[in-house]
Simulated assay, not measured.
Amino acid sequence: MVAVGAPAGADSGAPPGRLVIVQAVPSESLNVSVDGHMVRNGTPVGAILGPLSLSPGRHRVGFTDPSGTLRLTSTVDVASGSSSDIVVHLPASVGGAPVVNAYKTPRAPIAPGKARVLIAHTATVAPADVVVDGQVVFHDIANGEFATADIAAGPHVVALLPAGRRAHAILGPLHVDLRAGTVTMVYAVGNPRDHSMNVITHTDTLASNGAVVPGSIDTGRVGLAAGLAVHPFRVPQRHATPAETSDPQTVPWLELGGAVLIAAGLVLALRRRRGAQGRSG
Rank of each mutant, 00 (worst) to 15 (best):
V199C: 04
I21H: 07
A180N: 09
V2W: 09
P155Q: 06
A159L: 10
R271N: 04
A211C: 01
P162R: 10
Y187I: 02
D247R: 06
V222L: 15
I262A: 13
Y187E: 12
I217M: 12
D177F: 01
L178S: 02
R40L: 06
P242W: 05
A159Y: 05
V260G: 07
G42H: 11
A120N: 10
V61E: 12
A243H: 05
A229T: 14
T43G: 13
L266E: 06
A111D: 15
H139E: 15
K114E: 03
E28P: 00
L270Y: 03
I200D: 12
A180D: 13
A14C: 02
H239W: 12
A169N: 12
I262E: 08
G36F: 05
S80P: 05
S93F: 02
T122W: 01
P26W: 00
I200V: 15
A128Q: 07
V100K: 09
V125K: 07
R273P: 01
P248D: 11
P252M: 04
P26V: 01
A188L: 04
A152Y: 02
H89F: 07
I170V: 15
T250Q: 14
L30A: 07
V25S: 11
P44C: 01
I21Y: 06
G62K: 10
I21L: 15
V88D: 12
L70G: 07
R107Q: 12
V235S: 11
T205A: 13
D218G: 12
A259W: 04
P112E: 09
A123V: 01
R274Y: 09
L70E: 10
V34C: 08
E145K: 07
